[in-house]
Design a protein around this nucleic acid. Sequence first.
DNA 1: AGCATAACGCACCGTATAGTTACTTACACA
DNA 2: TGTGTAAGTAACTATACGGTGCGTTATGCT
Lengths: 219, 219
Amino acid sequence: MPLEKSRASSSTKKRVRDAEATKLRILEAAKKEFARNGLEGARVDTIALDAKANKRMLYHYFKSKDGLFRTLLEREYLNIREEETKLNLENLPPRTALETLVRFTWEYYIANPEFITLVNSENLCQAVHIRNSPTLKTISQKFIRRIQSLLDRGVRENIFREGIDAAQLNITIASINYYYFTNRFTGSVIFERDFTAPEALKERIAFNIETICRLVCKN
Amino acid sequence: MPLEKSRASSSTKKRVRDAEATKLRILEAAKKEFARNGLEGARVDTIALDAKANKRMLYHYFKSKDGLFRTLLEREYLNIREEETKLNLENLPPRTALETLVRFTWEYYIANPEFITLVNSENLCQAVHIRNSPTLKTISQKFIRRIQSLLDRGVRENIFREGIDAAQLNITIASINYYYFTNRFTGSVIFERDFTAPEALKERIAFNIETICRLVCKN
DNA sequence: AGCATAACGCACCGTATAGTTACTTACACA
DNA sequence: TGTGTAAGTAACTATACGGTGCGTTATGCT
């Protein structure tokens, strides 16, 4: 036996053909690697290895490193919006809905730390990958409309201030949560505190909810 | 004349030796290149070429690509803090001082777009370059103390709410300004508007000032 | 003028990297 | 059961990259 033929000889390893599973493993590995090292810093060999897939498969399914990144990023955007719709904001009292949205954003970033880094990478290259994605545009429009109708409802019930723009509010909610995580390393140096300590996290989310409520609510 | 000896033969080109000038040219070129392509994406050859310096000089003055990045980043942090002290916040009425600080942050990011991208790169690599910088720690402490004393003064004059943490406030001011710029490319896709249009800029800075004033001021 | 030193430049190196070529193997369906 | 097609693999390539060895030249000082 001069050359081991991977599957053939050895033991229990029943490698089955499963295109979808392989694609998924590659995407998961890509998420880790792109998030850790950025678009330029990520290595396709590392992704293939970590996915227990061959590099050729990566190119077969995703055409190129950028193609892989594009697919991944679109998936991630779909995922966050899908999770957000599950909140059922339209069935909550306006103020509760607003707080729920802020807290969701915060917790999503904690549970999906890769998301932030992927978005940063996409902005470094001026959004070339998603710029012409109709899917992304569609889900984004729906998202903004949901927030706008929440704002309208709050105004009707005399709880929210008038004239607040849904886009501006969204940008602000994202920013105060996003920035804290993406800049936690330089932040920890500048502010001499551990940004990820449980106490620090509790304090920050409370501060953020207060910021948004003071911005949006009457009184 | 078989081989042109750079200076010797040709015309007006009086290349003088000036270490400081060369260092500065390299740093300026590095700022552009690192900001455009990130730490991994930046090419030392490009930097040397753009600086009209030899790559050998780059390594002579800064030891390595990372050494160059470290020096550059520390300079940039020093610069923003230096500019900020010129605002003389301590001589302004509290509310004016607060607004001035928010507007300064905004305008600094507009005038120095590279700063944001450099900081993003530093966070991608978990702040390895500045983690142990005593200079940065010193200027940061002074900075936070300035903001804390502004908050204290505002409370004494019964204009600001009590109990606001200077660090949290700083993070929030930075975030609502920083995020808008760093995410302007994906933002333009998602919100279907040009983030850098003059009208959009005006609207955003007004929104940000309102956000901070509502957070900090009484009423 | 003579000289030590710092500024500068060319040409090169080893390696890591995205992407490819040419092949083998499993599986759905006739 | 035979076969076309898609899934999977290993070995390879061209090149671009960070970094360096070594020699040259300007400048300030005596």
